[in-house]
Design a protein around this nucleic acid. Structure first.
Lengths: 188, 188
DNA sequence: GAAATACGATAACAAATGTTAATAGATTTT
DNA sequence: AAAATCTATTAACATTTGTTATCGTATTTC
């Protein structure tokens, strides 16, 4: 529980007491490599915080092909946040790439935080803003960067990714085929 | 000021009195077609709310080519929100496509709202969440939809866009050349 | 109203990216 | 330890998308 507490305290003004209360409403869970934290079609009623491991977020298209949309690392929150907010069935599957330990924050706990933490709403705002900025960067880069450039700078966003994730998942994240990524890597 | 008041009241619990106070800190401005509301390289210290007109957001790449990243319509907020938050120089230029009227919300007013509106932080959260969901949808679609499919459904996101925006800007938004969009339109 | 500019379509060709198939080395499972 | 699966590379070919150039029309500017 050390990590999530530190992250919360970096974001907002919150007392030990308050954090303690808030964290009574969470649960720690472990997942083996390849296991699924959350499946598509199901309404996501929790947000995960990653203590250890790495989580892949993917969407499955009509042909059944999986597209990796995101990787989530230690000390980060992860969910189908859109459909958590909208309370609609998820589009994404969350899967552990390594044996992972996560903190599960149920909707009831999040809402409790909004109501009862002195700066609960602010924390919600900062989290949403943080992920907005991440997405804005992705969208921006999709317009002005080539796939090769985005590959070359991927460790800025996902440090050490090359040692933790197979290359074909990185290709999928970049929106290209693994064959094409192999080709691009040969370029200078 | 009717429109922004309505939007705020739809989002949060806010009294007429509070709205009135908040709106003392804003300013109405008009821009002619083609005029620039906000330029790249400058730190964005305000958020715009569109009363009338349509605003194009674009980024200029190293070769000087403009890439349309977004269209903002009536009753919407628009800014380089990332760099507004980060207080860093903007990447985007905001340009009026039609003669437009906007409400300018300076940073000082936004911050006043966070501090003094009963649900100011919540409003910030809801706005950030709203744009997060919009972006998430874009990213999702970039993985599972073809440019043709995204073209065909563009009016779901930007109603009446075809009557208000030249086609080459739509092509730019879709990340393809206008020549290619012409080709795609011929497909069934 | 004339001149200039912007706009959209099309053709021909070039470049980027996808598809299929084969291979060899890792890694995981049994 | 053997078998099965996963992984990354490469080649050959197909498809998609971009580039350059041209044309006719609409729209804007003077």
């Amino acid at each position: 529980m050390k990590a999530i507490q530190a992250v919360m305290q970096e974001m907002i003004d919150i007392s030990e007491e308050e954090v303690g209360q808030f964290l009574k409403g969470v649960e720690v869970k472990s997942f083996k490599r390849q296991e699924t934290l959350s499946t598509a079609e199901r309404i996501p009623n929790e947000i995960f915080f990653i203590n250890k491991g790495i989580i892949r977020v993917f969407i499955t298209d009509r042909e059944g092909v999986e597209h990796t949309v995101h990787f989530a690392l230690e000390r980060q929150f992860i969910a189908d946040y859109s459909n958590f907010i909208l309370q609609q069935p998820s589009c994404y599957t969350l899967q552990a790439i390594e044996d992972s330990e996560v903190i599960v924050l149920p909707r009831t706990t999040i809402e409790w935080g909004y109501r009862n933490l002195k700066e609960g709403q602010k924390m919600g705002r900062l989290v949403a803003e943080f992920y907005f900025i991440y997405q804005d960067n992705r969208i921006k880069n999709s317009y002005i960067r080539t796939p090769k450039e985005r590959y070359d700078s991927i460790t800025e966003i996902f440090p050490n990714i090359h040692n933790r994730v197979p290359q074909h998942m990185i290709a999928s994240y970049l929106g290209i085929t693994p064959i094409h990524l192999s080709r691009l890597k040969k370029q200078v």
